[in-house]
């Protein structure tokens, strides 16, 4: 078997094989971000990538080149690996855009992986997004590599001497500290029209302290033990669903703010209103009774907040495991004291 492969790579037929592969690089493209639009441009009538024999093909089994367009998340890495393994040898990988190179705008983010750790990469195409010319140049470079056998960059950048004065005076020091952010107040009273005020008064009659925070916006603060009672009262009042569940991490005050935005589809005068039902939790013991039984639409969003912040919604069945994040994501990535990978400054 080894001998046969060696014969294929350097035997008497190798030049023919190289010629065929050279002119027939069919890219299967894995679009994860905006670079896909640039790839479409590169193969449309303006630039026409088919000129150089590259035909876009949807199926990995029958192609020999994969173009990864955009950031690869932890979940997507698996897909990339499977797609790459499906392809028959000889196969090549081109990574397009800055996101695949070093993360781009998602640099040092908890959910990204580096594509070159997942698959062996032949060429990187820089740019955010890369231009069609750059992509076609990348394919040409790959053709050159197949023909001559040696990979090389298609461009050499001029080296610029940064003088002493341009040095950054102080590089950021590690470990980084959490800044003492100004305290976050959710229920700042603001001016509003009469109807909203009237509605807020009506809700206040239920025994709940409301604040009007804008036109059709009402905030309502409760203690964490009273949350379920308050939700039941509001349900009887006419609110029938949760639009959004939100958690705000305030580490310098040692608390989480948990918000439920309630709305109504069934009662006409409540339809434009968004009611912010919020409570505060200590960071050391972030436990709360779930509202998923009362408002079923809160279920998934509570799971997601559990993924991100580690707030335990007691009564929700999904607590303690990952819902939307990949299983190997580090725990509670949106907490403010989450430790990111330390970056290194060269100078």
């Amino acid at each position: 078997m080894e001998e046969n492969i060696k014969f294929l790579r350097s035997g008497i037929l190798a030049p023919i094989k190289k010629w065929g592969t050279h002119w027939s690089l069919w890219p299967v493209h894995l679009v994860t971000a905006c670079c896909g639009a640039e790839l479409a441009h590169a193969f449309a009538s303006g630039y026409d990538g088919e000129r150089i024999g590259a035909l876009n093909y949807g199926i990995a089994r029958q192609t020999n080149l994969i173009i990864v367009e955009g950031a690869i998340t932890r979940k997507m890495a698996r897909v990339l690996r499977i797609t790459w393994e499906q392809m028959p040898d000889p196969k090549f990988v081109i990574i397009m855009g800055t996101c695949g190179l070093n993360g781009g705008v998602f640099w040092n983010s908890y959910h990204l992986v580096k594509p070159f750790e997942v698959v062996p990469v032949n060429y990187f195409i820089p740019g955010c997004p890369s231009t069609p010319e750059a992509l076609l140049r990348g394919i040409r470079q790959l053709q050159n590599e197949i023909r001559t056998g040696e990979p090389r960059s298609s461009i050499e950048f001029e080296k610029v001497d940064l003088g002493k004065g341009k040095m950054m005076p102080v590089t950021p020091k590690s470990p980084k500290k959490i800044s003492l952010a100004p305290s976050i107040v959710v229920n700042v009273p603001r001016k509003a029209d009469e109807e909203t005020k009237k509605l807020a008064d009506e809700i206040s009659k239920l025994g709940l302290a409301t604040t009007v925070t804008g036109k059709n916006r009402i905030a309502l603060r409760v203690e964490k033990d009273e949350l379920v009672d308050a939700a039941k009262k509001l349900q009887n009042f006419g609110f029938d669903h949760v639009k959004n569940v939100n958690v705000i991490d305030v580490p310098n005050e040692d608390k989480f703010i948990v918000e439920y935005h309630l709305g109504s589809y069934s009662k006409r005068e409540l339809m434009p209103v968004v009611l912010n039902l919020f409570t505060e939790l200590p960071r050391s013991e972030p436990k709360l009774k779930s509202l998923a039984k009362i408002f079923p639409s809160a279920d998934y969003m509570e799971r997601e907040m559990h993924d991100f912040f580690g707030v335990v919604f007691e009564g929700n069945e999904w607590m303690g495991r990952k819902f939307l994040l990949a299983p190997d994501t580090p725990e509670y990535p949106l907490k403010k004291d989450f430790k990111l990978e330390e970056e290194k400054y060269l100078r």
């Binding site: 294929l8 094989k17 027939s24 028959p88």
Partner: peptide, 19 residues
Amino acid sequence: RGAIQALADGIRYFFQEAI
């Protein structure tokens, strides 16, 4: 005008791994 494109594709298929 690139009339042997199909030949190049055929040769590529011929030498590729059959999984």
